[in-house]
Amino acid sequence: MKLLVSMFLTFAKIGAFSFGGGYAMIPLMKKEVVSLHGWLTIQEMIDIIAISQMTPGPIAINLATFVGYKIADFPGALAATVGVITPSLIIITVIARFFFKFQNESKMQWVLGGIRPVVVALVAFAALVIGNTALHDVKGYLITAIAFIAVFIFKIHPILVIISSGILGIMLY
């Protein structure tokens, strides 16, 4: 029970501090799930991010479900997933009541003016940390380079990028 509460709270924290989409949450998820609680290894976390690109739903939900299930079976999956959702449910329901009043409030825009650049820093940091773990030979760098060209220049969809990278992995390793 203590574990379930801890998992709920950890994922609620992740939900409450996620700005700017799934990738920006990776450093926070790594800190909490890998470094502090040791619920996953960094390898497993990267694998789930890869799986997330090929399955429905946002990374945060997928990671919560996976971690919860791995640590405490179905109740764990439920506790962690509900944890990610709860902050949004509270924040948005409260704000929706004062919907238009909030719209005119520029204070949040000032705060976001500071958060937006740091979201970029979070994603860049995620790329560095995950790169450190995922890339350990020339083949890895080669796959990253090909995948980057595919997505950056040819605008290939991320699902296809991950699937093709995996197939390249099967061929090269």
Partner: peptide, 10 residues
């Protein structure tokens, strides 16, 4: 192979 692909997406 998928892990380096994730790095590229990031």
């Amino acid at each position: 192979g998928a892990r380096p692909g994730v790095v590229a997406l990031l």
